[in-house]
Simulated scan of single mutants.
Amino acid sequence: MKTQSTYKVIGLMSGTSGDGLDIAYCEFEKKDHWTFQIQASETVPFPKKLGKKLKRSHLMNGYRLALLDVEFGNWMGVQVRDFIQKNDIEAEVVSSHGHTVFHQPSKKLSLQIGNGWALHAASGIPVINDFRMLDVQLGGQGAPLVPIGDKLLFSEYDYCINLGGIANISMEAEGKRIAFDICPFNLLLNHFAEVCGKPYDKNGKLARKGKLLKKVLKQLNKLPYYQIEGAKSLGREDLDDYLQILDWSEEHKPENVLHTLVIHYVEQINKILIPRIGEKTRVLVTGGGAFNTFFMEKLAESLESDIEVIQADPLLINFKEALVFAFLGVLKMREENNSLSSVTGSLKDNCGGLVHGL
């Protein structure tokens, strides 16, 4: 593939939260370092039937899952085609994360659906997808992948935290990039908000009303995941450990569970953030959870005074992951590594992704 200095790419992100498809049209330029602009963006909610299928995809048999793979790829392609027409833009490539069904790196498995050929045929432009599987086959976690974007696009921050379905973090340590999933986030918050008849807990209002379940908090903090050191990642299937602790009872009202989860998340994140000596430590927080006012207040209260949480632009909060997946596609086009072994634990840095129609 040819190397050039500027790229116009559409990034697609269908996160584990399962609420919709993030589309970001991004322009990247490489001089002394990488720069970017998000020129157009949109979140398209999933149609009800498709959304239900995606949420239940991990329970489907092989045939139904194969059908959903093609259906979802085609649907994303149609959204991209409409997005291009609406914004009157030209893109070289679509770079798609896909929807994660299974993520079990210990079994060499990470499956994201959203068929690349179906997406290519429906959108009319080349597609790059399946970014995780090469890393998994090289013994890595296949996640998180965003840290290469943090390293090359957001190097002015000491920590980059993304609060999506899962909360993850990336940082420089001893001259190399490290990153890992910290804890669940919106996957569990949304689950208990739905018990209250809400799709999500807007601004953390429900959690703010609740009270702390101290015994539950202790149990959450003792979960085995928090004892693992080094490269580690969480999948939807890991949530059973949490749900067993949070099981419904009279005391475990959803507001109380939401409040307790917020405090649990704050404690887990706070353990990781170490202030730099003699200067402010800058923390960039993005992802849907950055709009959870109650969580952000509790996080700020818990941090030492020389740790500064940067208020990110709402555009970046909403579309950083789509931006970075667009960037992963750029690195794939340049045949440069887009997955770091220091992050995932794989045998070596690698250049993941399958190309359709380029």
Rank of each mutant, 00 (worst) to 15 (best):
F154C: 08
F154T: 07
E156N: 08
Y157T: 08
Y157D: 00
D158K: 11
Y159M: 06
Y159F: 13
I161E: 02
I161M: 02
I161G: 03
I161C: 01
N162V: 10
N162P: 02
L163Y: 09
L163C: 09
L163W: 10
L163E: 15
G164Y: 03
G165M: 09
G165H: 11
G165W: 12
I166H: 08
I166T: 08
N168W: 11
I169K: 02
S170E: 12
S170H: 09
S170Y: 06
S170I: 03
S170P: 06
M171L: 11
E172I: 05
A173S: 06
E174S: 13
G175D: 01
G175S: 01
G175M: 00
K176H: 02
R177G: 07
R177W: 01
I178R: 13
I178C: 04
A179W: 05
A179D: 13
F180P: 14
F180K: 02
D181P: 11
D181S: 07
I182E: 01
I182W: 01
C183S: 14
C183N: 11
P184K: 14
F185R: 06
N186H: 08
N186A: 10
L187E: 12
L187S: 14
L187W: 05
L188Y: 06
N190L: 05
N190C: 06
N190V: 13
H191C: 12
H191D: 15
F192M: 07
F192N: 06
A193D: 12
C196K: 05
C196R: 03
C196E: 15
C196V: 09
G197L: 12
G197H: 09
G197A: 13
Y200G: 10
D201L: 10
D201K: 05
D201N: 08
K202W: 05
K202D: 15
N203I: 06
G204I: 12
G204Y: 13
K205L: 10
L206M: 14
A207Q: 10
A207K: 05
R208N: 11
R208Q: 14
R208E: 15
K209D: 07
G210Q: 10
G210R: 10
G210K: 12
K211P: 00
K211A: 03
K211I: 04
K211T: 05
